[in-house]
Design a protein around this nucleic acid. Sequence first.
RNA 1: GGGCGUAUAGCUCAGUGGUAGAGCACUAUGUUGACAUCGUAGGGGUCGCAAGUUCAAUCCUUGCUACGCCCA
Length: 987
Amino acid sequence: MTGAHNDKTLDKTFDPAAIEAKWYAHWESNGLFRPHRPDAQPFTIVNPPPNVTGSLHIGHALDNTLQDVVIRYERLRGKDALWVVGTDHAGIATQMVVERQLEASQDKRTNYTREAFIDKVWEWKAESGGTITRQLRRLGCSMDWSREQFTMDPHFTKAVVKVFVDLYNQGLIYRDKRLVNWDPKLKTAISDLEVETRETKGGFWHFKYPLADGARRDDGLDYIEVATTRPETMLADMAVAVNADDPRYTSVIGKDIVQPLTGRRFKVVADEHADPELGSGAVKITPGHDFNDFEVGKRAGIRPGDMLNMFDAEAKVVQTADGLVPEKYLGRDRFVVRDMVVADMKAAGCLIPHVTKDKDGEEVAADFEPRTIQTPYGDRGGVVIEPWLTDQWYVNAEELAKAPLEAVRSGAIEIVPKTWEKTFFNWMENIQPWCVSRQLWWGHRIPAWYGPEKGDFGEIGLGWETDPKGKSVIRNRKVFVAETPEEMLEQAKRYYGQRELAIVGNDVGEAFDAYMKRGEIPIFRDPDVLDTWFSSALWPFATLGWPDATLPSPSGEGPGVGHVVPRSAANGDNPHPNPSPEGEGLAPSLLARHYPNDLLISGFDILFFWDARMAMQGIHFMKDVPWKRLYLHGLVRAADGQKMSKSKGNVVDPLGLIDQYGADALRFFMAAMESQGRDVKMDEKRVEGYRNFATKLWNAARFCQSNGIAASGSLAAPAAKSAVNRWIIGEVVETVAALDHAMADLRFDAAANAIYHFVWDQFCDWYIELIKGSFDDETRAVAGWVLDQILVMLHPFMPFVTEELWGALGERTDYPLITAKWPEPGVAVDAEAKREVEWLIALVGNLRTAKNELGIAPGAKLDAFLPEPSATTRGIVERNPAAIERLARLNGIRFEAAPAGAAMQVGAGDANVIIPLEGVIDIAAEKARLAKALEASTNEAKSLEGRLNNPAFVEKAKPEAVEKARADHAMHAAEAERLAAALARLG
RNA sequence: GGGCGUAUAGCUCAGUGGUAGAGCACUAUGUUGACAUCGUAGGGGUCGCAAGUUCAAUCCUUGCUACGCCCA
């Protein structure tokens, strides 16, 4: 039914689905995605690793199509093209999926031990981990599956651990107690980038904070008015800040406030953060729960360790260290407490109502002023982020950002399109410490261990305390950061001397004393894991085998380097190591050969998350940029321009489009729509159009085949005498040049359009039409060669249909298209042939138009006269009788005067062909037609004449512009003259 | 508030300092040695608005308007 028969005769219709699976399996099983080319110039890209348990969405389709276009192009150009592929463990996302599954069966994570839960995640990975890689195959992506990577493979984990330890030893990773963005739903810290600010409707409450000890302001008031959008935080207020230059408050700076609900006494402090222009000019300060207040608190001399905390990990109220939070608030949710606090302040007479006038001009009092609040939400958990004071691991991003900034400035990394440079600079220049620890179970466990710190006299055992999460922790910790437990123990022994050490579980808790009593020093590993982006930042080099010289060999095959990493050190949590299959070219030089990568293609939405961090880690550890070029593309939007989202229900499934139109059509759409700096709007009609394009090509090939046109076997253009053949060879030359130019600039749209228009407009519409009826050997050779060049040039965009046709047109099983050679015509454009064919095209086109306008049947075969042809035109006519008869549908063109009588007149180049139509045409209609054309020509000529008569133009314009204007003027003037003469003939 | 982008035919988008193109849609049509997922012909745009630079502006500059995105 579909595809090619065994005898390779092409079917009338073409079914993408039938050929896609066949060719993909063929390419992959024959190792054609990475042919052995040890002597070729390497070309390397790495795919942005999708979430391992995810599935292909339309954005992946765009991203991976562009990468495949590039890698297939470079492979065809003979390079040692490597497209590294793999998936990301996606810490938060994957853990959430598995937790949701547990919830569905009334189960939950905390019903399991950490190890048991992680086992469940590995099970889920095994179950669903193949989905997206299968889908990438359906799209036709020619990745090197033989070396498929996973961010939690043992060798990758080794790289992650080494990076952490090295950065720690270099002082670029440190543990710090400061405010983090805490997600109370996921119960983990997240980085600044994972916080999205949303506008929400909220309130602004005004309160009286009474001055203590009878103090009064200069104006006599005995309180300070403060306002807040988060009243609940007053339970942990530690100051009121006013501006030192604000005359309303100068006399009370340093005086005490008594907070009405907690009774806590704290100072009025002077701080620049208080803006006299805003509200009352005074601000309540909650250093433990607000980023600005944290800084104010520090400036006021409050140490982070002393800042009051009033929330637990789920943002429920807990007792502060000073014990002043009233019992009734404890254990309640932050938003419940907000309402309670407002009510209690109101009852205490400390709420200042918000007074407005209603529509009748009456004053109305409300508890708060309605306001639009910029509220931080966690991008994964979707709940309001709470600034929370905890110990977390931070990367000194400011330091690591220096080299990437310089790399982009110097051009060592080229960002395409360039407009993104500014965004990149802006972010990198203002980069904040990167919080990399996550309170999750699924991920790379942080290679840090804690034991009790020795006291001033070397004594050990200063006790333990309860952390904000309610867990018992060693109060003064000594941290040991090491790649393996063995190394850690070495460090610990050096520190503790000859004491017995005990590595204990995650919760040292109450067991601490027991260990101490037994004379053992308990040491436990940091329970946290690393931010997923911390590991994916290593993708460009860790996938190539860093830090080992070679990659680990598969399980059970000798001492692969990946397996010397003890399980505990690799992660301690990975019972299902993903063996790295051995592929071709696992030479020690893999890393050296393919780093730096040549190009990275990613969506701009992960510029900061991923690209920037790859640049930081890549340059730091490899002493060179991760990639020479960074191409950023936009989003794929829904047809109405909206962002696609599950909640809006406007998500387009790329697999559905592939089913309907074929992968080639979807790919071509993605490439053709990818112009730099603009989002791609989904347009299914256009996908359909490119499916039609594939069908058009299919049928053209079918026609060629049925006329004895076959595979060329020649890289160079065949010798050709006929103008038509010389012309089409020249068109190939120009198309290759246009494609190469577009690809060099990563203009995917221009590249796709160049081949599209060559195939349809030049090859199908004109060349095939022109050669019909004259299939000589030369023409067969040229047509076969041109069709081959088309298949090669189109292959990066439409790999399936082109490979199928390549196979159908000739016996070349040992020379598949995917590894064929990029066109090298070896000839120049033949200008004479181009002029000749363009003359024929103009004649045919003008004749068709004229016939149509005069209502003459298109098929009517007519006589034609050309009384005084120029030598050139005469030659063209004499050399192309078949085309003139077949396409122009003329009984030849006679070089003699036309018989008297009505005639239509058609121009082409310098010729005016007269076609007698006595009794056939409506003379009035022909006159009208000519008059219309005459007017257009005359207007054009006049306009040009006006310009040429302007001395300023002739003097100041570029000579080429003047020259062109003169030529155009001459052309239009001559045309007008011809048309006028033609009109005159009609009387 | 800061930054970036976009505004061109009904729709989706290219493009150029010398008065504009594609695909789809639309109208008419079906003669041609593959293709109706096709062919042929056609209609349709003061290139968001205003000012400036220039011999010349859709293109460069500035301002404005509208929409979108990122950061604070």
